[in-house]
Structure formats: structure tokens, C-alpha cells
Design a protein around this nucleic acid. Sequence first.
DNA 1: CGACGGGACGC
DNA 2: CGACGGGACGC
Length: 542
Amino acid sequence: MNGGERFCEQSECGASHPAAVASSSSSSSWPSGGDVNHNYYYHHHHHDQNFNASNFNPHYHHNSNRPDHQQHFDFQSFHSNGGAPAYGFTHALPLSGRKRDHMDSVIASHAKLYVSQVPRTASVDDIRPLFEQFGNIVEVVILKDKRTGYQQGSCFVKYSTIDEAEKAIRALNTQFTFPGEMVPITVKYADGERERLAILDKVFVGYLNRDATKKEIEEIFSPYGVVEDVYIVRDEMKQSRGCGFVKFSHKDMALAAIKALNGMYTMRGCDQPFIVRFADPKKPKGGETRGNTSFSGTNFGPHMQEPVVRRTTNPGDSMVGHNLPNAPYPLQHFSSTPQPQGVSLYANQEPQTPNINQQPFPSLQNPSSQLSQMPLQQTQNLQRSAQSFQAVPEMQKQMHLIQPSMESLEQQQWSQGSGQQTPQTGNNTQAVASNSVSPVVPVNAQVSELECDWSEHTCPDGYKYYYNCVTCESRWEKPEEFAIFEQQVKKQIQPHNPSNQFQSPLPVHSMEQVAQTQQVQHQTHVFHQKLQHQQSSLSASV
DNA sequence: CGACGGGACGC
DNA sequence: CGACGGGACGC
């Protein structure tokens, strides 16, 4: 079967590594509307040479099929709806110097699709616009035959969220035919992807106290989200094996728990801190497994030890096990039925204390209580640690989940955080830079005249949501006001862009409904032109 | 017809 | 080249 192996070249552009992209996207949870001026990254290395609307005529005359041509490309989003706001740090992030922990956890929620019936002559630029209509493209990889180097007629398209991927599947699978192809494309999850994504809301926990009850465990994890289930692994004698699983209602919560507790929380009577990581997929359970390396490269590996600040057994640590004095916070803070798609998340909650009850992310109550609610050990680590790799970024991450209306407060805490973590190593500092500088500044501050009650935020997994600082409403869909606001911002930043085409890329919904090849092709064609226009506008503005 | 990457820790 | 405890999915 070796002859059939495929390969694809890695991009020479270090900045285009998915990790680098992710570090930008995940670190930019703060309003992303005003970041267009950083998007120059996109065409920095890639001009439009292969990009041409005529690619969609049946002849595909461009020459992108030379075997050695780079066909691998990671995208920085540059349309506003796409997520992954570019804060411009991508190109500066060295491919090698990066921590795998945190970012990869975020990456884990990216959704990779496998697309076949792609013309062998198609370039990334032919493929991307088609898919970009449905969401933020993190990566496109054209598969090639390992030996000949020729394209094999399929590709991976990676979206930053599952939602986007689903949209693309619904709209494009068997619905779109590339010019020159006899059959429509198939668009489906790459092998193992579904399984991988399905369990991101569940964490494995090691170093549980063997006497711990479900309830006790639930209380420890509840501050980070709605705990739907706690399972303690037991032997045949019903004795706890000291590990278990905690399932949340949302993968974001799982991530929050990982960030906060892994290596940071030592249970009473234990001498080792928790291991908290995404659960491995359950049993292979039969067929449908292809050379499934789905979990390599993220933090699922057996010895992927997170660069957590491990508690060294300090003399003064007799407190171990008594951390989290009154730990657990009322579960009522969490909506029991979070809806990824729906209307306002917490619509059914009492409006009286909006700042608490209607937070976009209920897992964390409010910034002022955030520190005090952190497990004591974590706080200690933050304070004492000169090499708090994990803790500080974690804090930052959590901050992003917090009430956006508390900007000043947040900023204060931010500066504390970055101050403490100063004495750390370079790579991290970089990551932090993108974290702590850009996102903290609200769009409103950058563009003085423009204001919008809505702001855009990103969950750790890439989901975007919108928060209104006046009504305290949050919602998943982009409010019209915010879309307009975004456009205004962009006009201001790029005065050279006359007719800004940045509205939500294309009418996605009508797209899905129509789902007619002709239309799709037409719109794709149009999209090409738009892209070109946008690109030239962007270059002009840099 | 189906076809499913490559590199990836950090000192 | 050391890092890792090993345990991994109910009803």
C-alpha cells in the first residue's frame, strides 16, 4: 500500500503552520473587529498568481499542477465573520518554538474535512474560496501521490469550528461540481475526525483520591462548566482506581477545566496533582478505522506531559488537600441546556443580575471573583512562580471568557498577570504578547469615533459569540449592528477600500437552501472577484 | 470506485 | 534524551 500513500508538502512559510494560526486565533478572544490592519499576513507570501476567476472555466489553464508547487496553505482569516482574528503575530511565531499544551487543545476543536472529486489541477486558491463561504478556513491541504508528486484529486479543508464544517458539508457535499469534473465533490469529515470531535467535552482525570465521591469530584470541576457526568473508574472490587472521567456539557468547559486544574489541583490525601486532559476516544469499536492518527500532535499523546507548573513538594505545603476552601460554586449559574446554535443562551434566566447570569460564558462568574475562585494552588502558583508557563496563559484564557463589560477590571488583572509572568522564556513571551496586548484593547478604543454595544468574542474552541454590553445579551449569531459596525471600522482602517465587501461573506443560509450547482459556481466565481478585490485593497492598506 | 498529510516536546 | 503511574469509558 505504500505506493498509494499520499503526501503533501509542508508550507515553507512557518507562519502558516496551523499552530501558529491557532495561537493567533485562540489568543484573540477579544473583539476582533478592528484587526484588519494586521491581515497583511495573508498575501505576504502569496500573491495572486494562481488566483484567477478563470480557474473556474472548464479548462484550468493555470500551472499549479507542477508536482513541486506548494499546495499547502494555512489561512489567516480575513473576512470578519470568519473567526480567527489576525493580530499579526503569526508571521513572527517561529514554527518550532511553541508550547503544545494550550494551543493544541484549542486546535483539537478544529474540524477537518476530506474533500474528493477535486480536479487534479486545482490549486489551493481554487478550492479555498468555495469553502470559505461557510466559515473560517484554518488549513487547506491538497493531497498528492507520494511518489509522483501529482495531485490525487482530494484535499483536506480544516475549519476552525465544527459548525462551519457542518455548514460546508450540508451545502457542498454532492452539491458542487468543479468544472471539468464529472461528479460532484464529496465533503465529509476526515477519517477519525468525527470520533475525535465527539468527545472533546469529556476529560480524563488522574490522581483522584480513591475515596473521592462523584459529588466531590463534580464540585471540583463545576467551576469550569456544567458537569454532566462523573465516572470513577473502579476495579472488580469496586475500588476506585484513582482516575475517572468528567463530562461537561460543552467542550469549552472541558478545556477550561484542563487549563485550570491539570497539574494544578491536588486532591486531599494525594501527593500528585490532577492529570486532566481530554479523554481518549472510546473503544475503536469495530471497523471504520483507517490509519487513524487522529490524536497525534495534539495533547492526547501518552506522554504529552503538559508543561504545567508541577508543585514541587515544598516544606510549607502541608496545605495540600485543603485548597479550595469553599470550592464549589452553585451550579445554578450554568444553563443546563446550552445551545450552540440557538438564540440567547441564557434567555430563560432572571434578568435581575445580568452581569452574572447572562454572561456569555457562565463557567466563570465575574472577573473580580475570578482570582478568589481559582483553586488556591493555582493562585499560589501564579504568585510564586517565576516559570508559570501554564498558569498565566490559563488565566488569560479564562479572562477571555469573562464578562466583556468589565473591561477596565480585566485590564488590571491582565497587567498583573503579564507582570508576573515576565521572567519566563521567549517563546512563551511571544504567545503572551499576542494574548495580552491586542485583545485587551477594545475596538472602541482603537477606533475612537465608532462604537457598538456589541462585541465579538471567541470561545477557546473557536466558536464566536457576541455580547452586548448594554443589554448584557449574548448570542451566537452576529448581530446586524455589529456587522455594520465592523464595516465602518474597516472602512476607517482601510480608506482605500471603496465598496467594502466584508458583509457576512455570502448569504450562507440561502446558499444552503438553494444548493444548486449553478448558483454555487456562480457565487464562487463572484467570490473570486471579491477576493481579488479584497486582496488588492488589503495590500494597498499595508 | 475510493481515495484521508506531516510534523509535532523542550531542554 | 528524559519525560510518564496506570488506570480509559456506566446504565
